[in-house]
Amino acid sequence: MRSEMLVTLIVTTYNRPDALELVLGACLAQTDRNFEIVIADDGSGLPTRELIERTALRSPIPIVHAWQPDEGFRAAASRNRAIAAARGDYLIFLDGDCVPQRNFIARHRALAQPRTIVTGSRILLRERLTAYVLEQQLALAEQSAGFWLRQRAAGQVNKVLPLLVQLPDFARRRVDGFVWRGIKTCNLGAWRSDVATVNGFDESFVGWGHEDADLVARLHNAGIGRKQGFMATEVLHLWHPEAARDREGPNHARVLARLADGTTRAEKGLEDLAVVT
Rank of each mutant, 00 (worst) to 15 (best):
Q136D: 03
R58K: 10
T277K: 04
L163T: 10
D70N: 04
N103Q: 15
D89H: 13
R254C: 04
E127W: 11
R109D: 10
P100E: 14
P69Y: 07
D95R: 07
R258Q: 11
L51N: 02
R258H: 09
D32R: 14
G225D: 06
S3T: 15
G45A: 12
S193Q: 10
R79W: 02
V179M: 11
P62F: 14
K159G: 03
G43F: 06
Q136S: 05
H252D: 10
T264W: 12
V38W: 10
R181H: 13
R109F: 13
R33K: 06
D18R: 15
I123G: 05
E211P: 00
P69K: 07
V118L: 01
F147K: 03
R16C: 11
E4R: 09
G209C: 06
A244T: 04
G229A: 11
P114H: 12
M231A: 15
G45T: 09
A84K: 15
N199F: 05
V11A: 00
V165N: 01
I61C: 05
H252S: 14
N251H: 05
G72K: 11
E271F: 02
I92W: 08
G182M: 08
D261W: 11
L22M: 03
G262R: 15
A82S: 08
N187I: 08
G146L: 10
I123W: 08
V195R: 04
R54N: 06
G262L: 15
D32M: 12
L22K: 07
G269K: 15
L124W: 10
V11Y: 01
L219N: 13
A232K: 08
R58Y: 02
A243I: 07
G207N: 10
R172M: 06
R33P: 00
F147P: 00
P114S: 11
L46A: 02
V216E: 04
E242G: 15
S78Y: 02
G177N: 06
Q166R: 15
L149D: 01
L140R: 12
G96H: 09
E36C: 02
D97F: 04
V133D: 01
Q30W: 12
I10S: 09
V275A: 00
R126L: 04
A145T: 04
E234F: 11
W239L: 05
T8N: 01
Y132A: 07
F35S: 00
F170D: 07
L20Q: 03
R128E: 12
E21I: 01
C186R: 12
N103I: 12
T116I: 03
I52T: 06
L91S: 07
A232V: 04
A153F: 09
P241S: 10
A213C: 09
C98N: 11
R122A: 13
G88K: 13
R74I: 07
N251L: 01
A85V: 00
L167A: 11
L236S: 09
A77V: 00
S59A: 08
N251Y: 03
L28H: 06
C27H: 13
L24Q: 08
V175W: 10
S78W: 01
A243F: 10
L236W: 11
A141I: 05
T12Q: 14
L51R: 04
L270E: 03
T13G: 07
G229V: 13
S121W: 11
N251C: 00
Q101K: 11
V160N: 03
W148M: 03
R192G: 02
Y132F: 06
L149E: 02
I83G: 08
V175T: 15
E71K: 09
R265L: 12
D70K: 05
F201I: 06
T277V: 01
